[in-house]
Design a protein around this nucleic acid. Structure first.
Length: 283
DNA sequence: CATGGAACTAATCGCTCGGT
DNA sequence: ACCGAGCGATTAGTTCCATG
């Protein structure tokens, strides 16, 4: 296991990427299963398990603080946690594929809805030329840029290229601005991802408990315990869903202003004007 | 021991309008 | 067109506590 500590040090010193460290860990898991008490499992089950351990490995890497135990010892306990969870679900004869399939079929889509503003960047009227917009009226290119930066999460590279062309900007300049917004919004985005992941986890656990409840040989005592857990989880899912819905997935006017180095008021009124034009266009 | 919820407060948000 | 300020609404951050 000492080679793991060497790898972790290299990662800390910036010599290797996190993805590379993760790959090495998975490679170790597959090559030396006995080290992680996985030797008794079939190759197929082990592969199943290894793919499920991903979040545990990632979190172990993120959360490890060098206070006492070595990284390898820390990772080992995280992985044992994952193994424990896997055995619980595996006993019930489910594969992750089956669960995820069910999950995607039975639950609401988990991707965040695009913000309302994003629609405004959508298909402009036919025959529109660069710089003109609703009903052929000239649109302020800078205002469009505000909107694009606000909706940075939903702008693909290809879309950004086309926007840059329309706005008469250099592609690199627009990409650089979008990157800046992403940097400013980094913490928010991590939080959004965390909540989304949490939501998925709860949904999965609820599904497992419901299956367990459906089992015919369930004792009354056990049923009660499961029902209690289920109620709690459902409440949590509700709460986290509510939080996800209220999260701001677009950059704020202030953040856009910060990136462009202009006053917030300019962004405020620019966006306001665009919305007003959009409303007028639909009347 | 880390995680996550509840409740609270402080900070920030977008909308709007008037002055330049 | 740009900019700033006022305002009510909304969100982020903090703390404490329960849970697994």
């Amino acid at each position: 296991m000492e080679d793991l500590d060497v790898l972790y040090r290299q990662y800390q010193e910036g010599k290797i990427e996190r993805s590379s460290l993760e790959r090495s860990i998975f490679s170790l898991l597959c090559t030396y299963p006995a080290r992680f008490r996985l030797a008794h499992m079939s190759q197929e089950d082990r592969l199943d398990l290894v793919s499920e351990l991903f979040p545990y490995v990632r979190r172990a890497i993120e959360q490890y603080k060098e206070v006492g135990s070595s990284f390898s010892a820390y990772l080992y306990s995280w992985i044992q946690w994952g193994v424990k969870g896997y055995h619980r679900t595996e006993k019930k004869g489910k594969t992750m594929e089956e669960l995820y399939w069910k999950l995607t079929c039975e639950t609401e889509p988990m991707v965040a809805e695009p913000v309302a503003l994003e629609e405004e960047t959508g298909d402009p009227p036919q025959g529109d030329t660069s710089g003109t917009g609703f009903q052929g009226k000239r649109l302020n290119k800078q205002h469009i840029l505000f909107l694009v930066l606000k909706c940075y999460r939903y702008i693909s590279d290809d879309f950004a290229r086309r926007i840059a062309q329309r706005l008469g900007m250099k592609e690199e300049a627009l990409f650089s601005l979008i990157e800046k917004v992403k940097k400013v919004r980094e913490r928010h985005d991590i939080w959004i991802d965390t909540l989304t992941e949490r939501k998925q986890r709860y949904t999965l656990r609820i599904l497992l408990l419901k299956r367990e409840l459906a089992h015919p040989d369930l004792s009354e005592h056990k049923r009660k315990i499961i029902e209690e857990r289920l109620a709690k989880l459902e409440q949590r899912l509700k709460a986290v869903t509510r939080r996800c819905q209220s999260l701001r997935t677009s950059a704020s006017n202030n953040e856009v202003a910060q990136v462009l180095g202009i006053p917030k008021g300019t962004v405020d009124s620019g966006c306001y004007l665009l919305k007003w034009q959009w409303k007028r266009f639909h009347e």
